[in-house]
Design a protein around this nucleic acid. Structure first.
Length: 258
DNA sequence: AGCGATGTTCGCCG
DNA sequence: TCGGCGAACATCGC
């Protein structure tokens, strides 16, 4: 549940289910996900309300009275709003109980990601050195960044200090639709290609949100459904190639992506 | 049984 | 200073 579109879906889900309801209890099922003591966390949240939310890249901030609760979903985080304790989802780590009787669970299978308290969103973004949110990034910011950076294009897309929100899967799709190889050096890209990549960042992420993060319903001509060993390019039929960038496996077509 | 998985971080090296 | 690499974190599923 992790790249920008999935986090955005979680934000919409959170806003719809969990805003402006008094939290009457907090159940900590596994405190390893918490960046602070469970007791301290409970004290801050219980009796409070979630007032609003902000998403920056893959980071999700929930506003409370004088601070923010930050949720990062890691590789396997999710949210679930439910009515009866019998329906508590598997791998729940933190559960908020609302005055109306419902619960909201922060789910995480692999325990990557975290739940923490931050004073100020902008300070946090600055401290983490996060780049602009992928949706808010302007073309000018993108151009500037490509000029002062080197290395492989895929690494740049995965670098949250450059652009916040793009992860491994969507970076593959963005480069596929741009006909640019993930291994291309940033300095070698021409203006047209940079324009195309910028455009595809927005379109691919927007498409992901419209699909509500459901990769099984992608059209056949997308790369995402084919990101598997021994699969072929949906465009030319060539066997897909695999490369590594930032420790992640990238899939691409060596024929269609230059 | 072993390996890879939507992420981040840190130390090391050139 | 930057870019790249490998490992570490924890756990599930193929």
């Amino acid at each position: 549940m992790p790249e920008l579109p999935e986090v955005e879906i979680n934000k919409q889900y959170f806003d719809l289910t969990s805003l402006n309801k008094e939290v009457t209890d907090v159940l900590v099922r596994d405190d390893r996900i918490l960046e602070l003591e469970a007791e301290e966390f409970k004290e801050l949240i219980i009796g409070n309300k979630f007032k609003s939310t902000i998403r920056h890249g893959k980071y999700f901030f929930v506003e409370l009275d004088s601070f923010y609760m930050l949720l990062h979903f890691g590789m396997s985080g999710d949210l679930k709003y439910f009515e009866k304790m019998d329906d508590e989802p598997k791998y729940s780590k933190i559960i908020f109980h609302f005055k109306n009787g419902y619960y909201l669970s922060y789910i995480s299978i692999r325990l990557f990601g975290s739940v923490e308290i931050v004073k100020d969103v902008n300070d946090f973004i600055k401290k983490k050195k996060l780049g602009p949110d992928a949706f808010k990034m302007t073309k000018d910011e993108f151009l500037q960044a490509t000029k002062r950076r080197n290395g492989m294009m895929k690494n740049l897309l995965l670098n949250q200090e450059f652009i916040a929100g793009v992860g491994n899967v969507y970076s593959d799709e963005i480069l596929f639709r741009s006909s640019v190889s993930p291994k291309r050096k940033i300095t070698d890209l021409n203006e047209k290609e940079i324009d195309m990549i910028f455009k595809q960042i927005k379109e691919v992420l927007k498409f992901g949100i419209n699909k509500r993060g459901d990769w099984t319903s992608y059209p056949e001509d997308s790369l995402i459904p084919h990101r598997k060993n021994n699969n072929n390019c949906p465009s030319c039929g060539e066997r897909l190639s695999i490369m590594e960038a930032s420790g992640r496996r990238g899939f691409y077509c060596s024929k269609c992506q230059i």
